[in-house]
Amino acid sequence: MIGNYPLHLMILVLLWGYIYTSWSLMGRLGLVSFGHGAFMGIGAYTVVMLWNHFGWSPWAGALAALAFAAAVAILIGYPCFRFRIVGHYFALVTLALSEVARLVIVALRDQTGGSLGATPNSALHGGATAAPGALQFSDKQVWFWIVLAFWLAGLWVWRAVDRSMARLALQAISEEEEAAASIGIHVARAKLRITLISALMTCAGGVLYAQYQLYVNPDTVSGIGISLQMVFGAIAGGMFVMLGPTVGAAFTLLLAEGLRLAFGNRYPALDSTLYGAMLVLFIIYMPKGILGAALEALRARTARPIAPRKSSGMPSA
């Protein structure tokens, strides 16, 4: 069996990989959200609050969290899509959303513990290692399998979306919204649908994160910092290829752990600052991300020998 620390890192890579994949489902189709921290926060805090204050099992809590996230996604998404708030304006609206979520959590400090965060009451009594009803497991291996399953499910959704007409429709919308409407695409509905899928998946990620860490904090599960981390991770890894967001998760995690080992906690918000700076560099120099650029370079290398023959004939698919 591998050690606890490497296992912990693998779990985090898969979990964040799943969350970044969820974000990219809409991000790659022109819906760049800076508000996904809100959905993650809703997932994390809803289960923990319902468990601590009302004794709801996290299974029921997760359903409540998903319903809550869906309501918020519709509340924000529908007006945006109906009134054609696109591009930068959409990003700004969602940016506000993630900050509102964080502020609400902090403001309800009597219930949520405010900025100190909250810990779900332990269900592991008398040396038990697993409490499935309370979704608490002290064995990291259990978490590895759970998170792996979610990650795989996320990739499956990605592929299902890719193969559907909805992907073409959303890509058409992101390129020429009006032309898309006039060929018969219900623009607002198409956008709302992918937003819902993405938001619900992210919310589920928040639930997993809370139950795995057994600690929630407004800054680590919501707010601008976490939203920016998702945008950065997905873009850095490559949001246009299926495994790109996962590569981005590994990259951001190594970066964060590296910074932590090098500087400890001496410079708060150093990671966020670095994400912001590197995001700019990635967008300028590597817009397709690490994996996207690598795959492109690989394709160029394998294609080169036959290129001269190709160019003499008609271009074909």
Partner: peptide, 30 residues
């Protein structure tokens, strides 16, 4: 707007407004 096409009206907009990154056949498919 999205149901106008089902009434039998097709609009070829000013400046064509193709979906530039989709292939020719994908544009036709759309």
């Amino acid at each position: 707007a999205h149901e106008v096409v089902s009434r039998g009206i097709a609009h070829v907009p000013e400046n064509r407004r193709l979906f530039p990154r989709l292939t020719v056949e994908e544009n036709l498919r759309m």
